[in-house]
Design a protein around this nucleic acid. Structure first.
Length: 418
RNA sequence: GGGGGAGUGUCCCGAGUGGCAAAGGGAGCUGACUGUAAAUCAGCCGCCUCAUGGCUUCGCAGGUUCGAGUCCUGCCUCCCCCA
């Protein structure tokens, strides 16, 4: 591909963030002057963002790092409507209380990646509830609605897919793209915003906003999307057995976050290093060349760097150390996730099934625990459990005062005396 | 408004003749091999139970039957055709 003039575009390009751009040359020119004001919108559908959102957050980071201004837009308003993109079914409608609670819970994530303030390239946090909830229906139809062609909306992927698959698409969802387009115009007016970024599934919505801006007489708006991330083997990013890979530390411990990255497939390491760490390209180049078992070193660096960004350097180092004792030295690291038990419980004896299923949740049910025992998947203090009637007592406490429970090779939880 | 079709193991897709805890995929979990990778092979994959067994599942609510995902009635939702 051609080289861009601006640092921003070159960084995004070389690190693999770019999927589509509406008007590359003109955007490049803006970026070269440090005049890009870009936003990404985040719906408040859960109490935390997950790794799927990380890509766009990294784009905001690089935007700021190259002298431009990022806007993190909270979808306090649009979440009340629900985005139909990429979904077969209607999103369940959340209550306003839930949305507001989610919003507050999500906000903290951004300060890890971008700096907020009043300066030229300082980041701004906005919330579209601020203007969307004040809209007047008739005025909205006259000012904004008339610029939208139903004919064209019906050809948009988010709509067309639903129709083709004969899946319900309600009117409320049908309006989502109009609101998102309007957001772009509103941000252009308020903050001189001139670029909206997002995942490739957002292309249609973003381009609609670009269009609306032109019709409503704003300065030129731009669209830039990043690829939708899948792992090399085709799985969607961010799902594990336990569920989504959350960014909030209270929903997914830094140690587990580190583990998620550590378990990256070989074929993804280079790509992920570019996307999810700030390491310089030549260093990544070197790490990507590692072969065979050596690639594990690259994975550890990926895990530590990614965790450091999200949870801080200390937490990342700690997670790495915990992993080292647990996996490389076969020991019992004190910083593994732990569950407290009382002296009384322990003296009475805790059945293995209860310990695994109820206390730690390593398995979903007693039956699952039994099956895993038969398959040799459960261990107490690194010794396989062979008898499902076995009980844990004070005798099982290690010298450090913990009992280590393991499911498979990777999942460990400590029972700790309260 | 009239006519026709569909809703299945709460992750997804999808068979199903009155005897069904319900075929088969995919996803997922464990084991083997490895490098906390991928691929491959094996086992598991509703809940409780040592086990015989028990309980809860096929849109919702009733009914027929020794027995219903399967038959009947009503309702809900979606799709198609006609008006």
């Amino acid at each position: 591909m051609t080289a861009f003039k601006s640092d921003f575009m070159n960084v995004l390009q070389s690190r693999g963030f770019i999927h589509q751009i509406s008007d590359p040359d003109s955007l490049d020119a803006l970026a070269a002057k440090g005049e890009v004001v870009a936003y990404v919108g985040y719906d408040c559908t859960a109490a935390s963002l997950h790794v799927g959102h990380l890509l766009s957050i990294m784009m905001l980071h690089w935007l700021q790092a190259t002298g431009n201004k990022p806007i993190a837009l909270m979808g306090g308003g649009t979440t009340r409507v629900g985005d139909p993109s990429g979904r077969d079914e209607t999103r369940k409608i959340l209550t306003y209380e839930q949305i507001d609670a989610n919003k507050e819970s999500i906000k903290g994530t951004f300060s890890k990646f971008i700096t907020f303030g009043d300066g030229h390239s300082d980041a701004v946090m906005a919330d579209n509830a601020e203007w969307l909830t004040k809209l007047n229906y008739i005025e909205m139809l006259r000012d904004v609605g008339r610029h939208f062609s139903i004919n064209r909306m019906l050809t948009m992927d988010s709509v067309k897919l639903r129709l083709d698959r004969e899946q319900e698409l309600s009117f409320i969802e049908f309006n989502y793209m109009i609101l998102q387009s309007y957001d772009f115009v509103e941000l252009a007016r308020r903050y001189k915003c001139n670029l909206q970024m997002g995942g490739s599934d957002q292309w249609g919505n973003i381009v609609n906003g670009v269009d609306l801006g032109r019709r409503m007489g704003t300065h030129q708006l731009h669209a830039l999307t990043c690829p939708l991330l899948t792992t090399a083997s085709g799985a969607k990013m961010g799902k594990t057995a336990a569920g989504a890979v959350w960014l909030n530390g209270d929903m997914l411990a830094p140690y587990d976050y580190w583990q998620y990255w550590r378990n990256t497939e070989d074929a993804d390491v280079g790509r992920f290093l570019k996307l999810f760490t700030l390491l310089p390209m030549d260093e990544i180049e070197r790490l990507s060349k590692l072969q065979g078992a050596e690639i594990n070193d690259a994975k550890k660096i990926l895990a530590t760097e990614a965790t450091a960004l999200m949870h801080g350097r200390d937490a990342a180092d700690k997670a790495e150390a915990t992993a080292r004792t647990t996996f490389e030295q076969g020991g019992t690291a004190q910083d593994l996730p732990s569950v407290e038990i009382s002296r009384g419980e322990l003296d009475a004896g805790i059945g293995v099934l209860v310990a695994f299923a109820e206390k730690t949740g390593l398995v979903a049910s007693n039956g699952e625990a039994r099956r895993q025992i038969k398959a040799g998947g459960l261990k107490v203090n690194d010794a396989p459990v062979t008898d499902e009637k076995m009980t844990l007592t004070a005798n099982d406490l290690s010298s450090d005062g913990v009992i280590k429970l393991s499911m498979g090779k990777k999942k460990h939880v400590l029972l700790r005396l309260a």
